[in-house]
Amino acid sequence: MAQFTPIRGFVNTPVSKSICIIFTIAAVMVSILEIKYFFNLQVDPFILEYSQYWRIVIYQLTVVNESDYLICILLWFSYKNLERFYGSRIYLSLVTVLALYNALCCFIVMSVGQLITRLISYALYAKLGWISEVEAFDQMIFNKVIPGPLGIISSLYICYGKVIPVSYRFNIVLSAPTPPSLPEDDNSNEFELESEDLTKNTSSRELTLTNHLQIHILYTLLILNNGYLSIIPCMVGLFLGNLHVNELLPGAKWTLPNSVYRAFVHPVQTISKLSGLFDRNVNGGYERLSRSSDSLVDDGQDQESEDQTNNGEQVIRAETPVRPLGSQFFDTFRT
């Protein structure tokens, strides 16, 4: 089976690993808790009537169906080559910038499209007396989009095709090659066909593909998976991706603080450090010794007491005068 990337696993790609883990946990928790409706981005009624602008921020965090999850997780896994190209911290910064731009631009496109739709519906239908058609016309492409990071993935799709080189190409033969026809009265040239003529005759019957084929197939499925609900975020993402690769996207070179990057890549270590700082503040600046430290202190105290005992024995032995060998011999047989 062909690999999506030349290096297996998440070798030197901690950001891609964290994104896949967080994306999976978020999708599972949303499905278990049955809160998929929180992530729907719809102009009418959520934005116009209820003013729920927080949906613009969170609608890209997770998907609401299994097919979108499978395609997105495969594309996130394939984009780990981008992390190796940009570097982990710059790649995470790029994903953050693209997420902000996609959320804002997608909402602007939906709002402007909704306004233009209402104007067109009023001009075409209200003036003609067909007032009932206005409500149906509002429920079209500019009113709702599918939740998920489709815009971010679309922007990274353009970056992938721009910066990741092609490793190999392969040909798919669509039909068997047919030799060129020869005149009937000229049998001497039957086995003297030139290679150039044969190449020209068979070139149109082959399809040349690259190792980027998997990415193209997955992204095409992502666009077509939800019909017109995927059009706006994907088109906006492709537009922003082209701006980025042409260095026309403002703020694209901004980088996240190192503390934020480490918290995203190593959340367990960050939580342990924060808990240690909290314990220090609660205990007045002192940190409780661990069990290993306590054992080291106890061992040190035991060693110190043992040394003191040995030193005491040495002192006592030093106070006793050493008796000569002759005195010891006579004392033995004196009794």
Rank of each mutant, 00 (worst) to 15 (best):
Gln3Leu: 12
Phe4Cys: 03
Arg8Ser: 14
Pro14Ala: 14
Met29Ala: 11
Tyr37Gln: 12
Phe39Met: 11
Gln42Arg: 11
Asp44Ile: 07
Tyr53Glu: 04
Val57Ser: 04
Ile58Thr: 14
Val64Ala: 11
Ile71Glu: 10
Arg89Asn: 08
Arg89Phe: 00
Leu92Glu: 00
Ser93Leu: 10
Leu94Gln: 00
Thr96His: 10
Thr96Gln: 05
Leu100Pro: 01
Leu104Asn: 01
Cys105Ile: 13
Cys105Gln: 09
Ser111Asp: 12
Val112Met: 08
Thr117Lys: 10
Tyr125His: 10
Trp130Asp: 04
Ile131Lys: 06
Phe142Thr: 08
Val145Ile: 15
Pro147Ile: 13
Pro147Leu: 09
Pro149Glu: 14
Gly151Lys: 04
Ile152Glu: 05
Ser155Gln: 04
Ser155Trp: 00
Lys162Val: 03
Val166Pro: 03
Ser167His: 01
Ala176Met: 13
Pro177Gly: 08
Pro180Leu: 10
Leu182Pro: 06
Leu182Ile: 14
Pro183Val: 00
Pro183Phe: 03
Ser188Phe: 07
Glu194His: 11
Asn201Cys: 14
Ser204Phe: 02
Arg205His: 06
Leu207Asp: 11
Leu207Gly: 01
Leu209Met: 12
Gln214Ser: 10
Ile215Phe: 09
Leu218Asn: 07
Thr220Gln: 02
Leu221Tyr: 02
Asn226Val: 05
Gly227Cys: 12
Ile232Asp: 12
Leu238Glu: 13
Val245Trp: 00
Asn246Asp: 07
Tyr261Asn: 11
Tyr261Ser: 14
Ala263Leu: 04
Phe264Gln: 07
His266Arg: 15
Val268Cys: 10
Leu277Trp: 12
Arg280Cys: 12
Asn281Trp: 10
Val282Tyr: 03
Gly285Arg: 07
Glu287Met: 13
Glu287Ser: 10
Arg291Gln: 08
Ser295Gln: 11
Leu296Trp: 11
Gln301Glu: 11
Ser305Thr: 02
Asp307Thr: 08
Asn310Arg: 15
Asn311Gly: 02
Gly312Phe: 09
Glu313Met: 14
Arg317Ser: 15
Val322Met: 12
Arg323Pro: 00
Leu325Ala: 05
Ser327Val: 01
Phe329Met: 00
Asp331Val: 02
Thr332Phe: 02
Thr332Pro: 00
